[in-house]
Design a protein around this nucleic acid. Structure first.
Lengths: 198, 198
DNA sequence: TCATTTCAATGAACGCAGTTCAATGATAGG
DNA sequence: CCTATCATTGAACTGCGTTCATTGAAATGA
């Protein structure tokens, strides 16, 4: 049964995630502080630890939502993309870039939580990642019909990592607002060049 | 004149950098603690702040040395590389990977110090980065003789970022020791494919 | 050489984090 | 309605980077 306590727990959980989401988006992961969180949520600091193991667990809950939004953005871009598989790759990669640029601090938080060495990635992470990889490998299979599954998987990972690297280093020095255009050009350059000779 | 005080200052500086280098290499940037440092160096905690503005300055001094070692490794690999420009790119990228894998925590520290938004990157960073970019753009100019300077610069940045991304995400899940081989294969795949149609 | 000034070295103390836990208060079951 | 249970509380604990009044050594000039 759903006891009164359980309901309050769930409500506090949701409220904390919402506040943490706002905090991370505005001021970054490092601005997530237990006392501020408690004040904003109208609860005691200890209450946070009844609902989350620690602040990292809360941040991971936020990351799960962020990753989900990211996946949705990429999926939407793919749905509106032309049929040409190379253009599909470019559109998705630029959607990835647009999300990272428009949600910079939230996106950074996705990678700024280091899990202990040897610890497996969370399930939702693998899930969403697998979805993204499918979006990529489908057009790749059209572009490179001769390659076997293992090579396609390697290509998929490699391309995702490449786009991620371009966006990561590009946004790092995006103090001037100039670089957004350059990042999109780099993405298109790499992907077009990459797919030019099947 | 070199006063006794200045000599002691310099000696302490060097000793602290050495200890910090060891600490970061063994246990990562987050293991750099003022009190441990002082104990290991045989000085008071306050003495650290006579020589470095704060612990970040010390970590940056370590990073400068790490980046220099990285540049030297890549340069050495390039010196031993065959004449074919594509192979040169691959050899350098794999040397980058080898350095990152063999100096994982030190290499991570290069990117884990976030500078304040709007703040320019340190001079030594731009210097070494420019050197690396030259190593890349030279073979690229041979592979793509038709492209103009701006496009070559963009290609250079894009390729560096791509390799960086492949190594970064690859090493992240290198809990199992399997992935080293996969990372090298992804690098070769991307670079060969990229350079296949000039 | 010695007196005096100057400035480096010290480490206890400060502020600010995350996290804990004994005391308190509300809730669920009889 | 009573009572056992368990959630909630916030002061206290720990550990961190950093500071600063005090101490002591080094440089300076007579």
């Amino acid at each position: 049964m759903a006891t009164k306590t359980e309901i309050r727990r769930q409500e506090l959980r949701d409220k904390l995630i919402l506040i943490a989401e706002r905090t991370i988006a505005h001021d970054g992961l490092s601005a997530l502080r237990a006392r501020d969180l408690a004040k904003d949520a109208g609860c005691a600091v200890g209450a946070i630890y009844n609902v989350f193991g620690d602040l990292t667990d809360l941040a991971l809950a936020v990351n799960a939502r962020t990753f989900h939004r990211l996946g949705a953005d990429v999926a939407e871009a793919l749905a509106d993309a032309p049929e040409d598989p190379v253009e599909q790759l470019i559109v998705m990669a630029q959607a990835y870039h647009a999300f990272a640029a428009g949600n910079h601090l939230s996106w950074r938080a996705l990678f700024d939580i280091e899990r202990a060495p040897g610890e497996a990635a969370p399930d939702w992470y693998l899930q969403e990642m697998g979805q993204l990889f499918t979006y990529i490998s489908d057009p790749l299979a059209v572009i490179f019909p001769g390659r076997d599954a293992e090579e396609l998987a390697l290509l998929t990972r490699a391309l995702f990592s490449s786009v991620h690297g371009i966006v990561l280093l590009g946004l790092d020095e995006a103090s001037a607002g100039v670089s957004t255009e350059y990042i999109d050009r780099m993405i298109a350059l790499v992907l077009r060049q990459f797919a030019a000779s099947p």
